[in-house]
Design a protein around this nucleic acid. Structure first.
Lengths: 190, 190
DNA sequence: TCAAAAGATAACCGATCTGTAAAGTTATAA
DNA sequence: TTATAACTTTACAGATCGGTTATCTTTTGA
């Protein structure tokens, strides 16, 4: 199996787990839906958990790269990009097959903080906050920590709303709130 | 089994599902940890899903009552109570055995929008937003929809952060953001 | 061309899953 | 006291779980 074929397997497995959940997806289903035999899967991943971890890592890399790319397209300056976060999220929510945040789901199903899937999922979230923090610093805000957290809270809340609440365009609502918050926020003194 | 004993079973089952997850908790485990035999459980609930639905409904009633009660204790006026939301959340996060929002977890494990557990979980979230909306109206804000959504986004984001992010006191951060947002918000003209 | 690697199929293992049945025990209430 | 309802324990059924093995076919690369 060439590396690309292994990647293909992980990507297809990502679809299966994302749509059905981790515990609810048996390995027979994964084999059937990926088109890769169970024998071949277990030839590359020692256990189901190993496969799930690979799925989480792939999603981490791909999704962060996609999100940053979209944010940098939607916004030019750091401050614009703090708001572009919500434009990117709106685009994400509108995608066919959007079912919420895979990492939140992963932590819901793997609650043990010592579990690698749990830790990797938390690490993903930390990277998101760190990115917003870097934007807040570059934009010259006096309290980049508070700015980054607020943006992150609003974005996460919008994701939950997109899945669970009958709110039309939650990302747009969150963007409005973020814009007001940024407008009131103090700038760093020079 | 008197009604109170049935309630006891559901409450204990709630603990099991909250701690281990829904799919990860087998009925043998539920029987063992609740101290109620599997026979007795199936005497009152036709299926595991029925029990889970009862658990969700109990949690919905209890948690909303608790949250409203705490909010009304922390805040006197409607506007104070919109901020007291975060004091109540901080108290919740600090409780031993806090593992995040059961309804978010439930939707993560029961993705089918037609599933009663999914629908009941979404209904719970709708009630939360509706409560914030009533507070925003009572406080006299010009756009109570936007206010309610923002409070809800921030609260949900703080919950996710409390579980996944290495953020000290996320509820306090969210409260700061909410306070700034309310301070800038327009009041309804008389 | 041909050996070696990688794959598919399908049967299988022991454990666990949801849910049931049988048989005996405890609590309740007239 | 005694009939009844609710409970327990234990075993079980049939399906599915994660994971393995044996056999055969396809792909690959020198």
């Amino acid at each position: 199996m060439r590396p690309s074929k292994k990647d293909e397997l992980v990507r297809k497995a990502l679809d299966v787990f994302y749509r059905h959940g981790f515990h609810a997806s048996g390995m027979d289903l994964v084999a059937k839906e990926t088109g890769v035999s169970k024998t071949a899967i277990y030839n590359h991943f020692r256990t189901k958990d190993d496969l799930i971890l690979a799925v989480i890592k792939l999603r981490d890399e791909e999704f962060r790269a996609w999100m940053v790319s979209r944010i940098e397209t939607y916004g030019e300056t750091p401050e614009e990009r703090l708001l572009a976060v919500f434009d990117a999220h709106a685009e994400w929510f509108a995608q066919k097959g959007f079912f919420g945040c895979l990492f939140v789901k992963a932590c819901a199903e793997f609650q043990d903080p010592a579990h690698p899937v749990h830790q990797q999922s938390c690490a993903h979230q930390a990277q998101g906050i760190a990115y917003y923090h870097s934007l807040a610093v570059a934009a010259g805000f006096a309290d980049p920590d508070e700015i980054a957290r607020t943006i992150w809270f609003l974005a996460q809340g919008a994701i939950v709303a997109a899945v669970m609440a009958a709110i039309d365009n939650p990302a747009a609502s969150a963007r409005v709130a973020a814009a007001k918050m940024l407008a009131c926020a103090e700038r760093r003194s020079v």
